[in-house]
C-alpha cells in the first residue's frame, strides 16, 4: 500500500520535473542565445580543443572552471615559452583561445609568441638548423601567427590589440607594407587604437606599391589638419611621394621642417604595454 503510494509520489515528482524541464527549455535556449550574443556567456569550445585537453583540464572545463583552466594553461604555456617549445605553446594557446575566445589578451599573447618570438628564434638563434629549414619554419610561424590573429579578430571584431600585434608581424617580420597598412586601416576608429596608428597607416601605405596616390591624399589630409601632425617622418614620406608621383612644384609642401626636438622612435621590440621582447 504505502509502497504504491511512495511510487505514485515519485511518479508525480518526476512528472513535475519533466513538465518544468519542457517549459523552461525554450526560455533557456532563448536566454542562452541572448547571453552569448551579449558576450556574457561563452559559446562551447570546439571538440578539437576538448579532445586535445588533458583529462584533468577537460574535467575542470566541463565542471565550470573554464576560466581557471584557461589561466592555468596560460601559466603553463609560459613554461614552454621559456623552453622555446613553440609548437607545444601554440597547441596550448589553441585550447586557451578556444576556452576563452573573447579574452583578446590570449590572442595577443599567442600572436606575439608565434609571430615575434618563435620567428626570431628560428631566424637568429637556431644556427644548428640548415638555413633552408630555418627560412621555411620562419614562414610557417608567420603564417600561423597571421592565421591565429585572424581567428582572434573573427571572435573579437572590434579588437585593436590583436590587430596591432598582427600588423607587427607584417611590418617587422614579413616587411609587408601593404598588409601592414591594411591592418592599420582596419584599426582606425576602433576603441583602444593608439594615436600614432593614424600616421602609421599613411606611412606604410606610402611604401605599398600602387597605393601611392591614395597614400599621398591621406598624408596631405593629415598635414593640413594642423601643426600638431607635422612630424619629421610625415615630411619625409610626403617628400618621397611627391617625387614618386611627380607632384608639380608649386603644390609641393615647404621643405623647412618644424623645429621640434626629435622624439626618439619607439624601438620596435617594445610592445604596447611596455613588454620588451627579449
Amino acid at each position: 500500500m504505502s509502497f504504491f503510494r511512495q511510487n505514485r509520489k515519485l511518479l508525480l515528482v518526476l512528472l513535475g520535473l519533466v513538465a518544468f524541464g519542457v517549459l523552461r527549455a525554450p526560455w533557456e535556449n532563448r536566454l542562452r542565445e541572448q547571453l552569448v550574443k551579449q558576450r556574457l556567456l561563452l559559446p562551447p569550445p570546439g571538440h578539437t580543443a576538448l579532445q586535445q585537453m588533458s583529462q584533468s583540464a577537460l574535467m575542470g572545463t566541463l565542471g565550470g572552471l573554464r576560466s581557471l583552466v584557461a589561466t592555468y594553461l596560460s601559466l603553463d604555456a609560459f613554461g614552454d615559452f621559456g623552453e622555446k617549445n613553440w609548437d607545444e605553446l601554440q597547441r596550448k594557446y589553441r585550447i586557451i583561445c578556444n576556452l576563452e575566445p573573447r579574452d583578446e589578451t590570449h590572442w595577443v599573447s599567442v600572436v606575439w609568441h608565434i609571430g615575434i618570438n618563435a620567428t626570431a628564434h628560428v631566424q637568429y638563434y637556431s644556427e644548428e638548423m640548415p638555413k633552408y629549414e630555418r627560412e621555411r619554419r620562419f614562414q610557417q610561424y608567420c603564417s600561423e601567427a597571421i592565421k591565429l590573429a585572424e581567428d582572434g579578430i573573427k571572435q573579437n571584431p572590434k579588437s585593436a590589440p590583436i590587430r596591432l600585434q598582427l600588423a607587427e608581424v607584417y611590418r617587422e617580420k614579413l616587411k609587408d607594407p601593404c598588409n601592414t597598412a591594411r591592418v592599420y586601416k582596419d584599426m582606425l576608429g576602433l576603441e583602444g587604437t593608439p594615436g600614432y596608428i593614424t600616421r602609421f597607416y599613411g606611412y606604410f601605405l606610402a611604401d605599398c606599391p600602387g597605393k601611392e596616390k591614395e597614400a599621398y591624399a591621406y598624408l596631405m589630409r593629415l598635414f593640413q589638419m594642423g601643426e600638431k601632425h607635422h612630424l619629421p617622418t610625415l615630411f619625409v614620406k610626403i617628400k618621397e611621394l611627391e617625387e614618386k608621383l611627380n607632384v608639380p612644384f608649386p603644390r609641393r609642401i615647404k621643405t623647412d621642417e618644424p623645429e621640434r626636438p626629435d622624439k626618439p622612435k619607439k624601438p620596435s621590440n617594445v610592445l604596447p604595454g611596455g613588454i620588451v621582447v627579449p
Binding site: 519533466v18 524541464g21 536566454l31 542562452r32 547571453l35 551579449q38 556574457l40 561563452l42 573554464r66 579574452d103
Partner: peptide, 23 residues
C-alpha cells in the same frame, strides 16, 4: 536537458569579469 537544471546558463559572470557590458 529536461531533468537537470542548466547551471551553465548561470555562468554569465564569466563575461562580466572579462569586461563585457551588462544588459
Amino acid at each position: 536537458k529536461i531533468l537537470i537544471p542548466d547551471f551553465q546558463l548561470f555562468s554569465f559572470s564569466e563575461g562580466i569579469v572579462l569586461g563585457e557590458v551588462v544588459p
